[in-house]
């Protein structure tokens, strides 16, 4: 593959910079890929730490969890039970409750958050907005707050008797609202908390994309007499498409795995009104010690995520003017770890 393949270079790796280049006076080549011009082993050496860590701390645990999903703890003995856990899942009303709740939050929260994100990004991108750097920051900082701090803070804010949210609403004659203790309002609380947490992050991604839309497009549209809405509809939105696909897919995955918010705010209640699939998995594994079943839920969830993501890619691709590569840039999603 390579003219340079001297034996000395075959051992070269990230630490081998001192190895003398024996073929220095090589004629310059202009190839598109830089893969010409390096030893075969180089990429593997760069990937070595990732591969080792991946095998040990990702692949093995996931395979082990899959095996676990085929077992059950019967009287203290781990027993192979085949697909029993998966069959049990199909007949488990609570699993469907969790799926339904997750779907509902998905359908309400993701569009709301993404729409707000677009509005914010357009505002951040507008010269009319004063103090843009500060505002960008203000909307982004919620993401720095970790699970525990977030839980402590929001439980205190949304407490239905002593919380400041009801206190403030009281001044304008609203409430008190039973935020975390009513099946309906608990869902709303989760939606509010998630929107608070992640909207700024999405706005920043849109902003980045917006800045790549050529200004001439807008100027031309203005000359043609297009109004603000028309420009938004015909230039901004299509221009945002790659970022939209990215955020839709990642937010969907994040929401389908939703765990943090119900975990810290409602514990899945009241009466399972905010039980998500992620919560149900956790409860079975870590409250009831039923790891086989919990793993089965995890793999069922993975299949659901894969199917939903594929559908989203398909939809976006069909409506796009030209096919969009699947290899999309990703977003800051600490959630998806």
């Amino acid at each position: 593959m390579n003219v340079l393949s001297s034996t000395a270079r075959a051992t070269a790796g990230p630490t081998a910079e001192a190895v003398p280049l024996d073929a220095a006076p090589r004629p310059p080549r202009r190839r598109r890929r830089s893969s010409i011009g390096h030893p075969r082993i180089t990429p593997y050496l760069f990937l070595l730490p990732t591969i080792v860590l991946f095998l040990g701390f990702k692949l093995y645990p996931y395979l082990s969890a899959f095996w676990t999903s085929l077992t059950s703890n019967i009287g203290g003995v781990i027993t192979f039970v085949g697909l029993d856990n998966y069959l049990r899942l199909l007949n488990d009303p609570l699993f469907y409750t969790a799926l339904g709740n997750t779907a509902l939050i998905l359908v309400v929260q993701v569009p709301l958050m993404l729409a707000l994100g677009i509005v914010l990004a357009v505002a951040f991108n507008s010269l009319l907005l004063k103090g843009r750097a500060f505002f960008r920051m203000a909307f982004f900082v919620p993401i720095v707050m970790g699970l525990v701090a977030y839980g402590i803070l929001f439980s205190a804010l949304f407490d239905s008797s002593a919380g400041i949210v009801n206190e403030l609403l009281g001044y304008v004659g609203i409430g008190p609202i039973p935020w975390l203790v009513d099946p309906f309002w608990a869902k709303i609380s989760i939606v509010i908390a998630m929107t608070w947490h992640y909207t700024g992050q999405n706005a920043i991604i849109y902003l980045a994309q917006l800045q790549s839309i050529p200004g001439e497009l807008y100027e031309a549209a203005q000359v043609d007499g297009a109004n603000g809405w028309q420009r938004f509809r015909n230039i901004t939105l299509p221009g945002l498409r790659p970022a939209l696909l990215l955020t839709v897919v990642l937010s969907t995955i994040g929401t389908l795995q939703l765990f943090d918010e119900p975990y810290v705010l409602t514990n899945g209640g009241p009466d399972n009104a905010t039980l998500t699939v992620g919560m149900y998995l956790y409860q079975n594994g870590f409250k009831y010690f039923d790891f086989g079943y919990a793993s089965a839920i995890g793999y069922a969830l993975t299949v659901i995520i894969a199917v939903v993501s594929l559908i989203q890619f398909r939809l976006f691709r069909e409506r796009a003017p030209k096919p969009i590569s699947l290899k999309k840039p990703t977003s800051p999603k600490e959630k998806t770890r």
Partner: peptide
Amino acid sequence: SRGVAVTATAIAAVAAL
């Protein structure tokens, strides 16, 4: 904190398996 309560009984568990 229900978070902690859940975890507590819970994680404990990492275990049975």
